[in-house]
Each structure stands twice: as structure tokens, then as C-alpha cells.
């Protein structure tokens, strides 16, 4: 079986020669929770968009299950973009129906259970919900798919610490054992306990790919502290 994700020589140059990714090489295995970490403008979101086939690479390639992003990869990748994209006039339960129509692997019971856990009414219209609650709803939708790869771009930035814990527990208990979750974030200290591996990128280049336990063992410090050291300004 091929690796879940292979990134080879991946380069993305935007207009005006802005280099977002610079010959990036990395491999991501199955059954892992991975933190994609880097300062602002390091290329995290560009990498995520390339994984989802939303951008075209300038050079190099991305392979998911050995294939370029396309309809096939989209059926096994569940993606949480950094911005919400739902119609605000929709009700939560309409959203559930919408996802059920769109994705064969969507499990409405799972979504309903999580919504109940966070006391979010299915009859609520999205526009009546707070920004943080809308983010929670969106994450619940994404995590309720039975995907092989979950890609979460800044999933916990807008929610309070208690909900953050709930969401992390949701992620731990809901992804299946062969699935991989990629989480891009700045909030390292909040999530490092749930991570297997971290990927540090800067200026579109890979700085480090290492297991969290190895960093703690070798450096004697948390990933958060190590990140601050590596990316000290």
C-alpha cells in the first residue's frame, strides 16, 4: 500500500514571484495525528490547499493514496478550511441533510451526538449562532465523516478553552484507527498532547518532522517551548 500522503518537490509560486512553498518533501503515514506548525506566512495553508486540489502546484506533486488530488481523493479527505463557508440562513439540521447528500461517508448520528454534547440546537440558524459556535458546528460536520484523512486548518482558534478540550476529545475518540488527522495551528501547547508527530515549516521549507515524544525525550522540553526556540525572532 502506498503512503497516505506523499509530497515531492512541491513548489508554489504565487503572482509577483511570491514563493509560498519551496521544494517541499515529506511523507505522512496512516493512523496518526499530526501537527502542522509554522509561523504566519510559512506556507501551511498553501500546503493544505494543494492537498485538497484547490491550488495547482508550480512544480512537484502531491499524492494521496498514490494519486493526484481529484474526485477520488476528495471522497476520502475531510477538510476544514480556515474560514466558514456555509450559508448563514441555513439551519443546523439542514446542514446535516446537506452533508448527508454530499458525502457517502457522512454519519448523521455522530454529528447529532456531538451537537448535543455541546448543547447546540439542530433547529438553530447559523446566523443566530456566535462565531465560535459556528466554528464548532463546522468542525463537527467535518469530523462526522468517516474519512481516511482529516485536514483541519486552524480548527480551535476561535473557541473557548473548555470547548477546545471537548473538541480535542472529539477528535481523539472519533477518528478511526487507520485515519490520519492533520491539524494546522499556532496553539501548540493546547494540542501537543494529542499529537503523534509535528511538522515544522518555515518559508515554505521543511524544518523538522519528528514525533512529539522524541522531541520531549531528546530536548527535555515541550514542543511549544521547542517551537519558540526554533522560530525565535
Amino acid at each position: 500500500m502506498s503512503e497516505l500522503v506523499e509530497i515531492r518537490n512541491l513548489t508554489k509560486i504565487y503572482e509577483k514571484k511570491k514563493v509560498a512553498l519551496d521544494h517541499l518533501n515529506l511523507t505522512i503515514g496512516r493512523g496518526k495525528i499530526i501537527g502542522l506548525l509554522g509561523p504566519n506566512g510559512s506556507g501551511k495553508t498553501t500546503m493544505i490547499k494543494l492537498l485538497n486540489g484547490l491550488l495547482v502546484a508550480s512544480e512537484g506533486e502531491v499524492l494521496i493514496n498514490g494519486k493526484a488530488p481529484g474526485p477520488e481523493s476528495k471522497s476520502i479527505v475531510s477538510y476544514l478550511p480556515e474560514r466558514t463557508y456555509f450559508q448563514n440562513s441555513m439551519k443546523v439540521k439542514e446542514l446535516i441533510a446537506y452533508f448527508s447528500d454530499f458525502y457517502q461517508d457522512f454519519r448523521p448520528e455522530r454529528a447529532k451526538q456531538m451537537l448535543a454534547g455541546l448543547n447546540i440546537s439542530e433547529d438553530a440558524r447559523l446566523k443566530t449562532l456566535s462565531k465560535g459556535t459556528r466554528e464548532k458546528v463546522q468542525l463537527i460536520m467535518v469530523m462526522s465523516r468517516n474519512a481516511q484523512l482529516y485536514i483541519l486548518d486552524e480548527p480551535i482558534a476561535g473557541v473557548d478553552p473548555a470547548a477546545r478540550d471537548y473538541i480535542l476529545k472529539t477528535i481523539i475518540t472519533n477518528y478511526n484507527e487507520n485515519a490520519t488527522v492533520i491539524i494546522s495551528t499556532h496553539l501548540i501547547s493546547d494540542i501537543e498532547r494529542v499529537l503523534d508527530e509535528v511538522i515544522f515549516i518555515r518559508d515554505g521549507r521543511l524544518i523538522l518532522q519528528e514525533t512529539v515524544e522524541e522531541i520531549r525525550e531528546k530536548k527535555g522540553k515541550s514542543v511549544d517551548a521547542y517551537f519558540r526556540e526554533v522560530f525565535a525572532c
Binding site: G31, I33, L168, I172, T173, R193, L195, D196, V212, E213
Partner: peptide, 17 residues
């Protein structure tokens, strides 16, 4: 493993280890 991992808020693979 899952239950303990969720309770501790840690990665299931770490709990497994």
C-alpha cells in the same frame, strides 16, 4: 485505550505505548 486517551486528553498511540 480510547477511553483512557480521551480521559487523559492524549493521543491514543501514546496511551497504547
Amino acid at each position: 485505550v480510547r477511553e483512557l486517551a480521551a480521559e487523559a486528553g492524549v493521543n491514543p498511540n501514546t496511551m497504547q505505548k
